[in-house]
Simulated scan of single mutants.
Amino acid sequence: MILSLNWITLRVRDLEASLNFYHGILGLPIERRFESRGRQIVMLGTAEQPKIELIQANDQAVKPECGVSIGFEVKSLDEAIEYLKSRGIPAARGPVTPNPHLRFFYILDPDGFEVQLAEHS
């Protein structure tokens, strides 16, 4: 069996705040937006990459302490740090350089989920 990652689902308290973060600030394109079983859902990402699925949920469904983080590759970590700082988003952890070819840091989304931005050289 061969598997290919399709999407990662995040249940969020405020769909518009999460859209502002993932689409407005991080720049993920909105692939589609729809309603299913009374819940608003947004799929973010390009055709050639796995999607981030945001589902409007109630407060009890959001569990950012569950150990899930989402990672993205950036061309320049320093530029990403400065850009996010200018948008009022501080680093939650890092930057960390675990080896000479990798640097990364974490920020938090509006629900407290960790988002890792990494630069490979």
Rank of each mutant, 00 (worst) to 15 (best):
P50I: 02
A92I: 03
K63Q: 10
R93F: 14
L44H: 01
I70V: 15
E114P: 00
Q60P: 01
D59K: 11
A91S: 08
S36E: 11
E48K: 08
F34P: 00
F72S: 09
V74T: 07
V115R: 02
D78W: 12
P50C: 04
L102N: 10
A57F: 13
Y106D: 05
S86I: 07
K63R: 14
P50R: 06
P110L: 05
L77G: 02
R37D: 10
V115Q: 02
L54N: 01
L102M: 10
L54A: 01
I55V: 14
P64W: 08
F104K: 02
V62G: 04
A91K: 06
V42N: 04
V96Q: 11
P64F: 05
F34L: 10
D78S: 12
A57R: 02
G45D: 03
F104G: 03
L54E: 02
D78A: 13
N99C: 15
P90F: 03
K63H: 08
F104P: 01
G112E: 08
Y83E: 06
R87A: 10
R33Q: 14
A118I: 00
P90Y: 07
V74P: 04
Q116S: 06
L77M: 05
H101I: 09
S36F: 00
D59V: 08
P90I: 06
L102K: 09
I52P: 01
I52S: 01
